[in-house]
Simulated scan of single mutants.
Amino acid sequence: MSATHTRDMLKQLRRTSKFYCPQCKEELQLRIGELVIPHFSHRKDSNCQQLFSEGESKEHLVGKRQLYSFFESKRITVQLEPYLKELSQRPDLLVTAQNEQYAIEFQCSNIPLKDVQARTKGYMNAGIHPLWLLKTPNLEKQKTARIQLIQLSPFRQQFITSHPQHGSTLLTYNPITSMFMYYSHLLFVQGYRFIAKVQQLPIAHQHFPFLHLKEPTKEEFQQYWQLHLQIRQRFLRQRLFLSRKGVQDTLLKRCYSIRISLEQLPLYIGLPVRYAQDIDVYIVEWQACLLFFLRDCNLSTSQVDDEIISTFMKKYPDYFQGDRGRTAIIHYISLLKKLRIHSIQSTEDESKIFHLLHREFLAKCYEN
């Protein structure tokens, strides 16, 4: 069906014509409702193995139609739900631009990761660029701040893309508001939490290939830093007052051994680092343990090598699974050397830490 067909034209066409599935050759029904966009459907007793546009949500159907119209308005060649026989796959949209093909999947619900990987691999093997576009989460209250603490489920995290110039981004689309939502320049915190630059873009202002947001300004990175400090301070306070182990808590005992309170740990303990998500505890926890470990071994940060890192990781098997986390440790040691931090009792300079992290952030040193 063409985007130029009106509902009246389609109703007339339905009275005078018959329609057949290009795969199973069964007769199709042309449904023309007032809410959902017109579409074809098989009969309930169909045996077709390539059913499409059936059982889909209203948001999915409307979103595909809006995206289809968007590409048409840009005079970009686009097909709606074409069946790719050689792949046995049917993307929501197949776009051809600048002699390149793009399979766009507008994903409104969670599906098994293995299905995502299989579809992605199929497109790539055929020389087609896969673009997964998630539906923007329905939140009761959208925050207005541009720099926000957000939560991304493991499913959504699989669709974060990394660009050498523009950093990490999760792009979503909301068919109700006709808005793209950018969660860009993601900085991992812990678990499902990230600090991100969040911005909406009306579909009328979008381009293709999809736009990238400008990197955060120094003032915006200051907001990253303040959110980071708030999260860090909240962790330390909760650990101090809510630890189930009480005085037997290892971290509390080690702080007491050098006569500082948990809340007085220097700011270079808890630095955001690359691949921090590979370690199963919050950055303050394992970074403090690493510096205490070096203190016990009478080692400075400048003496750390692969063997010492391996010994440390074996000492804390609950934190590290196999070799996961090694890159995060290496990045952390690199930051400490740049800051000229030699041990857990080195002095700190918050301004120096902030400027180093800002440079690392702009250099995309936190990208996976």
Rank of each mutant, 00 (worst) to 15 (best):
A204F: 03
K214E: 15
P266L: 00
N298C: 02
L290R: 03
G270Q: 08
H166Q: 12
K114F: 11
K338A: 11
E27Q: 12
L28I: 04
C21D: 06
Y316W: 11
E59M: 03
M179R: 06
T96W: 09
Y268M: 00
K74E: 08
M9V: 07
G33S: 14
H166N: 14
M1V: 13
A328Q: 02
K58R: 14
S109T: 13
F361H: 00
K364I: 05
I128P: 00
L299Q: 01
Q233K: 13
T311Q: 14
W225K: 01
F71C: 10
N125W: 02
F155E: 00
G33Q: 09
T172W: 02
R244S: 12
P130S: 05
I353A: 05
C255L: 01
Q321S: 05
Y319Q: 04
Q98A: 14
F293A: 02
L171P: 09
K314V: 00
F208M: 07
I147E: 04
E81P: 14
P91R: 08
P209M: 04
L94D: 03
K44T: 07
L152S: 00
I37P: 02
S88R: 09
V36G: 01
C24L: 08
I76R: 06
V304L: 04
E86T: 11
Y268V: 01
Q230L: 12
I111Q: 07
F70M: 13
Y192L: 01
A3H: 10
V189Y: 04
E285K: 13
Q165K: 13
E81S: 11
E26W: 04
A145V: 04
F235Q: 05
F188V: 04
E105M: 09
D8N: 12
D306A: 15
K25L: 08
N174V: 02
C297Y: 15
S153C: 01
F221H: 06
A126Y: 08
Q345N: 12
I309A: 03
V62G: 00
L357P: 05
R326N: 06
S109D: 04
R15C: 03
P82K: 12
Q107S: 09
E360P: 00
F210V: 02
P22T: 13
Y123F: 15
I308Q: 12
R232H: 09
L201W: 06
L240F: 14
E215R: 10
D306G: 11
T217N: 06
H185C: 13
L51R: 10
P91Q: 04
F106S: 06
Y83V: 09
H39I: 06
R7P: 00
F354L: 13
D305R: 08
S69N: 13
R90W: 02
S310E: 15
V304A: 02
G127H: 03
K18P: 01
H5K: 11
C365N: 15
I231Q: 10
T217I: 05
F208D: 07
F19A: 06
